[in-house]
Design a protein around this nucleic acid. Structure first.
Ligand code: MN
Ligand code: MN
Ligand code: MN
Ligand code: MN
Lengths: 145, 145
DNA sequence: TAAATAAATTAGCCAAGGCTAATTTATGAA
DNA sequence: TTCATAAATTAGCCTTGGCTAATTTATTTA
C-alpha cells in the first residue's frame, strides 16, 4: 500500500509498524511480543515474519529473532508518520481516542502522499484556528452542556 | 464495516454501493455490468452475489437477476454517503481527482460515524473559509505559479 | 546440569475474495 | 423457430491472513 519501492499489504504494514515500535521501546521484537501487541497468535506471526523476510522487509533467522531491513524500516517509519498525522487530525476534530485508534488503524493504509500531506497542512492551519475547531466539535457534543 | 445491523466486509460494501449506482442509473444491475464496473470477473461477481444473498443484502435468483434488500440498500446508501463526504473533503484540500478516487475507495470502509460527521462539519466550515483552503492547497502547488 | 517452562515453529485447517476455463442458460437475429 | 451470441454459472484453482494443536528449541530455575 505504500508508494515507492516494494509493495506491502495493509497487514504487512501493521506488522512492520509494530515491530519498529517494539524495537524502539525495548531494543528487540520477539514473536511473542509481536503477537501480544497485535492481538494475534504466535503462529500467525511466524508465518508473516517469514513472508516479510522473503519480501526483503526483515532479516529473520529461525529461533534467533529478526531485525528490519532498511526497506522495512522505511515502510515502518512511513506508516508511523501516517498514523501520527491521522491521529492528530481526528483528535483535533474531537473524536474519542478509542474511535481515533480504530479508524486510523484502518485508514492509514489507504492514503496517497498528496492526501496525507494536505491533511497535515490542514492540521497545521486548524491549530491556529481554535474557533473553527470549536464549531466543529460542537456538533459532536449535542447532549453535553 | 458498518455499525448497526449485520456486518459487511469492505468488498461487500463496494459491491452494494456499485449495485445501487447501477440500479439508479439504468434500473437494473446485471452480473456483467457489476463485473465491468468493478473491474473484476463475472465469476467473482456470481460468488459474491450469492454471499450477499445468504447474508440478506440482496435477493438473487439464478439467471434471473438481483435486487437489494432494505438492509442492502441501507448499507449501499450509507457507504455512498461516506464516499461523498470523503470525496468532498479531499477535493476541497486540492487533491487530484484520480487520487481522491483511489483514496476514498479505500478509506470509506474505515471511518466511524463520529469521524465521518466530524469531517462533514469540517467541510462545511472550510467552505466558508476559502482563505484557509488557499493556504492548504498552496503547499501542493510548490512548482506552479 | 537436568528438569521445567517459555518461546518458536510446524502441520493442518479455515474463510474471504480473487482468477481462468468449461459449461449452461437466455436472448436476439435470421 | 432455430441458431449464434451474450450472459451467467460451475468447477477448480490461488493467495492472504487468520486459527488451533502438536512439536521442537531455548531459557530459566532448582
Ligand atoms: Mn493499520
Ligand atoms: Mn498504525
Ligand atoms: Mn470502497
Ligand atoms: Mn466508494
Amino acid at each position: 500500500m505504500i508508494k515507492s519501492g516494494n509493495k506491502s499489504s495493509s497487514a504487512a504494514e501493521d506488522y512492520l509498524e509494530r515491530i519498529q515500535e517494539l524495537i524502539e521501546a525495548k531494543g528487540y521484537a520477539r514473536m511473542v511480543d509481536i503477537a501480544a501487541s497485535l492481538g494475534i497468535s504466535q503462529a500467525s506471526v511466524t508465518n508473516m515474519v517469514k513472508r516479510l523476510d522473503t519480501e526483503g522487509f526483515v532479516l529473520y533467522e529461525k529461533y534467533r529473532g529478526l531485525v528490519l531491513t532498511p526497506e522495512g524500516e522505511r515502510i515502518a517509519k512511513e506508516i508511523a508518520r501516517r498514523h501520527r498525522i491521522l491521529t492528530d487530525f481526528l483528535s483535533q476534530l474531537g473524536v474519542s481516542s478509542e474511535e481515533v485508534e480504530r479508524d486510523v488503524e484502518g485508514m492509514e493504509h489507504h492514503l496517497s502522499l498528496d492526501s496525507l500531506e494536505a491533511i497535515e497542512r490542514l492540521c497545521q492551519q486548524l491549530t491556529c484556528h481554535p474557533d473553527l475547531l470549536a464549531k466543529i466539535k460542537h456538533g459532536s457534543n449535542k447532549g453535553i452542556l
